[in-house]
Amino acid sequence: MIQILSVHFDHYIPHWRTQPEAIGYNVMVLVTEGKVRYQINGEDIVAEQGDFLYIPQSTHRCGENLPGSPHQKYTVLFTFEPGRNTGIPFLDQRRFLRFRLANFQYAQRRFERLYEEMRGSESFRSVICLGIAQELLGILSRELEKPEMTPIKMQYAQIVRHYVLEHYREPIEIEQLARLIHRSPNYTTALFKEVFGHPPIRYMHQLRVLEACNLLLNSDMTIAGISQYLGYYDSSYFFRIFKKYSAMTPAEFVARGRQSELNPIFS
């Protein structure tokens, strides 16, 4: 049984460091901004945005900011019953692990939700926190089972992703994305889904809905104006897309007033 001890969010802490020690708990780390240096059993490790680290109990560990470079990261401290298999290979093997997450944005939001739940006082908090932690461990285990992505595939996927990030408010067709990497539309869709977990057009809608949520909370734009701004020229279609990816209507989201309610968008 996994027991969560604490969850931390380090937000650009100046002069951050931890003292060298053999830790008495397990640690999950997700770096969300910048870089951080660890020494793990005498080996120097530099982790950067998108990196996940698992540091097993009894590891001799210390950490610090890189010079002039504070960072952001989530850290989960937890234990589980010694001598009993969890069914999670990297936990049962008690080995240090570092790898780059394919679906980083979703994992980041789950870490964020876990952090918020641990700080809250609402009913069933411990049950929800345990569920989120187990989900994260399952996601990480599944990603580890995937065959290693070839550099050219990663390059193609990043080209497409960068284009969508830059142009998500404009009309985007899969054919134009395929032309960017000189491959077929079917190949482009399958490749993007293999790397990032969902097709590129879905990713475009996710970005639009995230921006819509930001504008709903932090601007005086009307829903119709936001719809037009994001490239949805039919407001009823915008409503359908928003509810599909957020599980709420725009009005319901505004009533809740919390950016952290966006977890369903990345499910």
Rank of each mutant, 00 (worst) to 15 (best):
I4M: 08
L5R: 06
L5N: 09
S6N: 15
S6Q: 15
S6I: 09
V7S: 06
H8A: 09
F9D: 14
F9N: 13
F9K: 10
D10Y: 14
D10R: 10
D10L: 11
H11C: 15
H11P: 10
Y12I: 07
P14V: 04
H15N: 15
W16Y: 11
W16T: 01
R17M: 10
R17Y: 09
R17L: 08
R17K: 13
R17V: 06
R17P: 08
T18A: 09
T18I: 05
Q19S: 13
Q19G: 06
Q19C: 08
Q19N: 12
E21D: 13
A22K: 14
A22R: 15
A22E: 10
A22Q: 11
I23M: 08
I23A: 00
I23G: 00
G24I: 12
G24A: 10
G24D: 15
G24R: 13
G24F: 11
G24N: 15
Y25Q: 06
N26M: 12
M28R: 06
M28L: 15
V29G: 04
V29T: 14
L30R: 04
L30V: 08
L30N: 10
L30A: 09
V31H: 02
V31R: 01
T32N: 02
T32Y: 02
T32W: 00
E33N: 07
E33C: 01
G34S: 03
G34I: 05
K35L: 07
K35G: 05
V36T: 05
Y38L: 12
Y38R: 05
Y38T: 03
Y38Q: 09
Q39N: 08
Q39G: 01
I40V: 14
I40S: 03
I40N: 06
N41T: 06
G42L: 05
G42W: 03
G42S: 06
G42R: 03
G42P: 04
E43Y: 01
E43T: 08
E43S: 14
D44Q: 13
D44P: 03
D44I: 08
I45W: 03
I45H: 07
I45R: 12
I45F: 10
A47V: 07
A47L: 02
A47F: 01
E48H: 07
E48R: 05
E48T: 09
Q49W: 06
Q49Y: 05
Q49K: 13
G50Y: 01
G50A: 04
D51K: 00
D51P: 04
F52S: 08
F52D: 07
F52I: 12
L53C: 04
L53T: 00
Y54S: 01
I55S: 01
I55A: 03
Q57H: 07
Q57E: 15
S58N: 15
S58K: 14
S58E: 15
T59S: 14
T59G: 02
H60E: 15
H60F: 15
H60L: 15
H60W: 12
H60P: 07
R61W: 13
C62L: 10
G63R: 01
G63P: 03
E64N: 14
E64G: 12
N65W: 02
N65S: 14
L66T: 12
L66V: 09
L66S: 11
G68T: 03
S69G: 02
P70L: 01
P70F: 00
Q72I: 01
K73T: 02
K73Q: 13
Y74Q: 02
V76S: 00
V76G: 00
V76I: 08
V76Q: 00
F78H: 00
F78G: 00
F80Q: 07
F80H: 13
